[in-house]
Write a protein that binds this DNA or RNA. Structure first.
Lengths: 198, 198
DNA sequence: GTTACTCGGTTAAAAAAGCAACCCGGTAAC
DNA sequence: GTTACCGGGTTGCTTTTTTAACCGAGTAAC
């Protein structure tokens, strides 16, 4: 079938996961600023230079989970079937994310996921760097949408919508509601927001 | 206490264990000749050259467990307290091994250990190489005992005794008896054999 | 009788990891 | 105020590992 991933690649991936998991779990337990990169390296059983070879900065240890979705919007637009408008494709994609309760949509009530989002939103340096990521994502989406100011404006608006929707969902769940319970509202919000984009 | 083992050393040890364990468990399951070094490398998730950097030959993948006791007899003799004769020290050491049911003494009825010994004894190339190890051990013991033919003779006799004792114990256990049950006989045999050496 | 496997074992080059030492900004000690 | 430590990152240098290719002996195919 498809286990043709070489030994090297497999181990690198595993190391990367080990570092990321160790970091996130330590951050959740003690807070971002109270955990040093040395602690993380020790927990992941790697050396400090190795850690920085996998993640350029301390913040990326947290944000790689968002980074994994990097360029997703652009890809959705590029891969849409002919005859479908970009906004429609993005709308459907986001809705599918809601139906799968994907963490990125904010609609996920697993305690770790909720705590993880709180960690990101309440740590200034993390929130700051997260917007950096989103700006890159926006640029990629703009490229996929075409050229000129028009494309860039649309890209910005789409991502703003997604950001607000995700944040809204997360807030409701952080207030104690269950994801399943919030789902209908989340879908309704998304429908409204995306149709206003057209 | 003792966490001062560097990262590198710790990982090396773990890799070595992983290879050795993978090898032995595959050998026990399928037989020495029906498992290739490639299979072992794959199971241990390392490459073939790495395997051979840890173990010089395929046989050593099995025999390293004996090799870990390499030079033990010589050390026992050298480290004996003053006033104690070499044979006495070796006798006591062997007896202590019996009391701890150490696999090397043959007096151990853990299924894996029994199967492991059967594997070694019934695979000619392994049995052959095992005697090589014992010859080196014999030379070391001879050195510890002094110089000349006299020392070499004594060394040979001591190791021969230990070999026969261990083999005898193993045979009884392979016949289905419990180690605890065999223990008194094993001690008696050892006492008799060692006192005849004097 | 070549051809083409497989298997134990080796080689050379390149990637990756470890280690120790360092830079720089902050901050606590005295 | 300087000394000293801690934090995030970096820099060489060495050790370890992967990769792919190979050698030489055995052996099955045809």
């Amino acid at each position: 079938m498809s286990e043709s991933t070489g030994l090297r690649a497999r181990k690198k991936e595993r190391t990367r996961d080990a570092i990321g998991d160790a970091a996130v779990s330590l951050f959740l337990e003690h807070g971002f600023d109270r955990v040093s990169v040395n602690d993380i390296a020790a927990a992941a059983e790697i050396s400090k230079p190795t850690l920085f070879r996998y993640f350029p900065t301390k913040e990326d240890l947290v944000l790689h989970r968002f980074a994994d979705h990097q360029g997703e919007a652009a890809r959705v637009v590029r891969d849409r079937r002919s005859g479908i408008k970009p906004v429609t494709a993005l709308h459907r994609h986001f809705r599918a994310g809601l139906d799968r309760y994907e963490p990125v949509t904010g609609l996920n009530d697993h305690p770790e996921v909720v705590a993880f989002h709180r960690l990101v939103f309440t740590t200034p340096t993390l929130a700051g760097r997260l917007t950096q990521y989103q700006l890159e994502d926006e640029a990629a989406l703009a490229d996929a949408l075409g050229e000129g100011i028009q494309a860039r404006l649309r890209a910005a608006q789409v991502l703003a919508v997604q950001r607000v929707l995700a944040r809204t969902n997360w807030q409701k769940i952080a207030d104690g509601r269950a994801a399943h319970d919030v789902h209908p509202e989340a879908v309704a919000d998304a429908d409204q927001a995306f149709s206003q984009l057209r």
